[in-house]
């Protein structure tokens, strides 16, 4: 790991100014689960590390009738075991619970989970200068791509690694951001960006900007949600494919549907096609399968990841049935 200076600001504005002053040489440290491994592997080589954990007040879950306000430093295990989240924001609790291992969930934060960098094995290899690191090609296209994107890919084919993001998106969450130019709130739908927009980052954060809170509106009456994650190795693994689904139903018919996929696209992938297949319908196995088919209708596999097409179709189907409480 390259030697660095550790800065310990005590409030958000201190963190913002330290990060802003450091510019491209700076990195924000939360739980460090991702950042430290990037540093150990020389993928990130900051000379200044700003320790967000020294900032107080960012580690609380506030729950009210309006919804949730979750500090960026709240750990994934705190989210997974929070009774209100499990009961009313089920997909989020399930997503947090599905991340990695208990040890990682005890340390990893929600802010860090949303802002973590991709796991692509080319991106993570110091000796490979891929498109995302300023090189000229995405090696996944002609190389080994079994874990890569089938939707929204190009020119880079990473998949977004976060499990919490899709769950938060179907629940309509947004993030509060503090930065050198002040504060802003961005809906998670608009937070993540495709490689076509910017190759070198996965979200809209500018230099010096910090996610301070994640807010989730209270779900409308009759809303149920579910996050289903398929991992090759159940003990601990990333999503081969996953789906977060939130359904609001009235008199047995779906009035609102949100479907966001994980493990298949460079961003948590919202599927309006799947949502459309559900709205106005009573959920049955056939309808759920139709939503699955719609979700992957535009999939463009690379070769090694073609299996993700039928898999994702089935994942959407199963997640929809589960969210609707229908036995499949």
């Amino acid at each position: 790991m390259k030697a660095f200076e550790l800065v310990n600001p005590t409030d958000v504005s201190g963190a913002v100014s330290a990060l802003t002053a450091a510019g491209r040489e700076g990195k924000l440290l939360a739980g460090g689960i991702d950042l430290l491994s990037e540093m150990k592997e020389y993928i990130a080589t900051p000379s200044i590390v700003v320790n967000l954990k020294a900032v107080s007040g960012l580690n609380k879950i506030e729950s009210s009738a309006k919804g949730l306000k979750i500090g960026a430093l709240v750990t994934l295990s705190d989210i997974a075991k929070h009774p209100t989240i499990a009961a009313k924001y089920t997909a989020l609790a399930e997503a947090a619970e599905s991340v990695a291992s208990p040890q990682i969930r005890h340390v990893g934060t929600l802010g860090g989970n949303l802002c973590q960098r991709p796991r692509c094995w080319y991106y993570r290899d110091e000796h490979v200068i891929c498109l995302k690191k300023g090189g000229s090609k995405c090696y996944a296209i002609e190389g080994e791509n079994e874990y890569h994107a089938i939707l929204g890919g190009g020119p880079s084919y990473i998949v977004h690694p976060s499990d919490c993001a899709p769950a938060l998106m179907v629940l309509g969450a947004s993030v509060d951001i503090s930065g050198p130019k002040g504060n802003r709130t961005v809906s998670l739908d608009k937070f993540f960006i495709l490689p076509t927009e910017n190759l070198y980052k996965e979200n809209v954060l500018e230099v010096g900007e910090i996610v301070t809170h994640i807010t989730v509106p209270a779900p409308a009456a009759g809303t149920t949600s579910h996050y289903l994650k398929i991992r090759h190795k159940e003990s601990m693994d990333w999503a081969l494919s996953g789906a977060a689904v939130a359904l609001t139903a009235k008199a047995g018919k779906v009035t609102s549907a949100k479907v966001v996929l994980s493990g298949v696209a460079p961003v948590p992938w919202r599927s309006p096609e799947a949502e459309k297949a559900l709205i106005g319908k009573q959920v049955t196995t056939a309808i759920a399968d139709r939503a699955g088919a719609a979700a992957v209708a535009k999939a463009k596999p690379l070769g090694g990841n073609a299996y993700k097409v039928p898999l994702t179709r089935n994942v959407v189907r199963l997640a929809v049935l589960h969210a609707a409480g229908v036995k499949g």
Partner: peptide, 9 residues
């Protein structure tokens, strides 16, 4: 990986 000659995992 045949492109890089390196082990990926």
């Amino acid at each position: 990986c045949q492109l890089t000659g390196r082990m990926l995992n």
